[in-house]
């Protein structure tokens, strides 16, 4: 029980947080919604990259597939959000499965570059498919509606996302402990050794891709119906890079790390923006264009610096910080 205490406290905070925040902090709830959706997708990417060892820096493409599948099913087929959400996940999963086959022959850098290309190409192809995606103009997915409750507001939607995150995280945690999860890890550590032990490379690599894309598809569908406005170019390489950054920052091969990373990466820009607003209000930098720019746009450079520092000093990610601090106070830390 004591072991699970941090997780329980975290869950309790997540449950009450939107209720505690006043109306003037509504933007925070929206930000939190985005963070938790990214957490779902990051868990999926972590299954692929952290556990199965396959790099993908084009994951926003799967998110786009999920988002537009979900929108299209609601708009043209008349399937409500509740039905469209899992189908969107499956559709993205199918695309992921298909991408898994060419990826079978690739590894390391080659795979990274191929997925980068995939991530760039998919939004452009979707952009051409104007009847579904609206091209440059984009489309407006409707807010979900169930039993008289509209999920147009951010607070009800928050709980929807939280439930989804809970299910998906639980799924991932269990999967890692299953035969499939162990096969992923074995393939990551040595493809040759894993194959020698009878683990099918084809089966598990394509499964990893499909599974990871499924998570991204679910995230994409949730995102589309939360933002209520999507266009193919919202799913560019910037999002893919953000997801990749999240898992590396939070911690590779860690479900908790994915969630921590997603929250961190979503709040960092807002935090630096707030701080720089306060500094700017003092009017200290009115004479200097450079300093104004620095404070207006601090978060990108800060993200970069944090990334490099994490790689240098915390190779296991931010979750490792927790373990390290804990060790400071227990006998384990004493050498």
């Amino acid at each position: 029980m004591v072991k699970k205490l941090p997780a329980l406290v975290g869950l309790a905070v997540l449950l009450v947080l939107p209720q505690v925040l006043g109306a003037e902090y509504s933007w925070l709830v929206l930000l939190l919604n985005r963070a938790l959706i990214f957490a779902i997708m990051a868990i999926g990417l972590n299954l692929l990259t952290g556990f199965a060892g396959q790099i993908s820096i084009g994951h926003a493409a799967f998110m786009a597939v999920g988002a537009f599948t979900s929108y299209g099913l609601g708009k043209f087929v008349g399937i409500p959000f509740w039905g469209a959400l899992p189908i969107a996940g499956l559709a993205a999963g199918l695309v992921g499965y298909a991408l898994g086959f060419p990826a079978l022959r690739l590894s390391g850098h080659y795979l990274a570059i191929a997925t980068l290309g995939f991530g760039v190409a998919v939004p452009q192809v979707l952009n051409l498919w104007e009847s579904l995606t609206g091209g440059w103009t984009g489309v407006k997915p409707a807010a979900p509606y169930l039993l008289g409750i509209s999920f147009r507001e951010d607070r009800p939607f928050y709980y929807l996302i939280l439930i989804a995150l809970f299910i998906m995280a639980g799924l991932a945690v269990n999967l890692i402990k299953s035969r499939t999860g162990r096969a992923f890890i074995a393939l990551r550590d040595s493809e040759v050794a894993a194959q020698a032990m009878g683990i099918s490379l084809t089966k598990y690599k394509t499964q990893a891709f499909a599974l990871s894309a499924f998570y991204a598809g679910i995230g994409g569908s949730l995102y589309a119906h939360m933002i209520n406005y999507i266009s193919p170019h919202d799913f560019g390489s910037g999002i893919s890079m953000e997801l990749f950054t999240i898992i590396c920052l939070g911690g590779l091969a860690s479900v908790n790390g994915s969630i921590v990373g997603a929250i961190f990466m979503s709040f960092l820009p807002k935090l630096t923006e707030r701080i720089s607003l306060v500094i700017q209000k003092s009017g200290a930098f009115e004479h200097s264009h450079f300093l104004q720019n620095v404070f207006k746009n601090f978060n990108q450079v800060l993200t970069g610096i944090i990334l490099i520092l994490v790689v240098l000093y915390l190779p296991m990610g931010l979750v490792d910080l927790w373990r390290k601090t804990k060790n400071l106070f227990t006998a384990k830390g004493v050498k």
């Binding site: 990749f244 950054t245 990108q300 970069g304 240098l312």
Partner: peptide, 23 residues
């Protein structure tokens, strides 16, 4: 460091150089 760490470091560099150029 492993391959993936180095890749992340160059992505970090990407952010830093891009941001500083904007400044």
């Amino acid at each position: 460091a492993p391959l993936i760490s180095v890749m992340i470091a160059t992505l970090g560099l990407f952010q830093i150089i891009n941001g500083v150029a904007g400044w």
